[in-house]
């Protein structure tokens, strides 16, 4: 991690939150945890362009937890909304109709369903056009708002509302899809690792162009665990190597917190109701081993 960060240790993190409380999110929402931490660094000089998902219910008339601005669009087109806002701000700046201090960071905020699937075409095009925006995806690995059905981000073996025997497919690699577009920046973060997260937001804000912040969002409601365990689930996602913390810059991917030694994936899986069928009534050694092998393969390749 570069020396220019103002976040050297935990004590450097903001001690009060900028994002208001009392929202409609569930207790223990890992997406909201990450958003709090992101917003503290990002600040209120921003406009959040949102896609349909749990977080759409952050701003419910006449309340909003944001100190800055907000625009809800649709499930598929938040990146296009960001394009319109950015283009308009640029036009106003160029014409002298908007003083530079009135300019805003344009932020897209969507779930995985939008980011990996319905909105991927709009995202790909926005990156290709070089849109100057920050894309925050809170990845709860399913269509959470509609009751946690399988999405393109659902991991292998997880039970969802549409895969009661466990998902047979494998999670799509959105980070790699972004990297293939050669964006200005892409990083994975998790609320349970706030220092790593803060440094990445800090870095992203210094850059211009398309930037991804992909936050794994432990979801007590959809994943089936007690709200108080969100941080523990998040830590284990990183420690087990299931969720690699990394960043992409200038064509290179760097792991910012490679776990060693790695905890067995079963420690991570066992905490969550969506994987309970892998342990009870009979242990499904084959599936657990498959998941472990996939994680091992990833880290071998990551060198």
């Amino acid at each position: 991690m570069s020396a220019e960060t103002r976040f050297g240790r935990m004590k450097d993190l903001p001690s009060t939150h900028l994002l208001g409380t009392g929202t409609a999110m569930c207790a223990g929402c890992g997406g909201l945890e990450a958003l709090h931490e992101i917003y503290d660094v990002l600040g209120a000089r921003s406009v959040f362009v949102n896609a349909a998902g749990c977080m759409t219910l952050l701003s419910v008339y006449p309340f909003t937890p944001f100190r800055g601005s907000w625009l809800y669009t649709s499930m598929a087109s938040a990146p296009a909304g960001a394009q319109g806002v950015r283009d308009a701000l640029d036009l106003l700046l160029a014409r002298g109709a908007l003083p530079p201090e009135e300019d805003l960071q344009v932020v897209t905020l969507t779930g995985d369903g939008a980011a990996y699937g319905m909105g991927l075409s709009a995202t790909s095009s926005a990156i290709e056009r070089g849109l100057d925006f920050l894309y925050i995806c809170y990845d709860n690995e399913g269509y959470g708002n509609t009751g946690q059905q399988t999405s393109a981000a659902t991991p292998h073996g997880a039970r969802t509302a549409t895969a009661v025997g466990g998902h047979v497919g494998w999670k799509k690699d959105l980070f790699a899809i972004w990297c293939a577009h050669r964006p200005a920046y892409a990083a994975t973060v998790i609320g349970a690792e706030p220092l790593d997260l803060a440094r990445k937001i800090e870095k992203a804000m210094k850059l211009k162009g398309p930037r991804l912040i992909l936050a794994l969002a432990p979801c007590p409601t959809g994943w089936g665990y007690e709200p108080r365990d969100t941080v523990e689930v998040g830590r284990l996602a990183v420690k087990s190597g299931v969720f690699p913390l990394k960043e992409y810059e200038d064509g290179r991917v760097t792991h910012t917190k490679p776990p060693h030694p790695r905890a067995p994936v079963k420690d991570y899986l066992r905490l969550q109701g969506r994987f309970a069928h892998l342990f009870e009534p009979k242990r499904d050694e084959a599936t657990i081993a498959e998941i472990q092998a996939a994680v091992d393969r990833y880290w071998e390749g990551a060198g």
């Binding site: 000089r45 701003s59 909003t64 907000w70 625009l71 201090e101 009135e102 805003l104």
Partner: peptide, 11 residues
Amino acid sequence: FRASRPLSQAC
């Protein structure tokens, strides 16, 4: 949208 006058639209 501008920095000094935050606004929520399409809530």
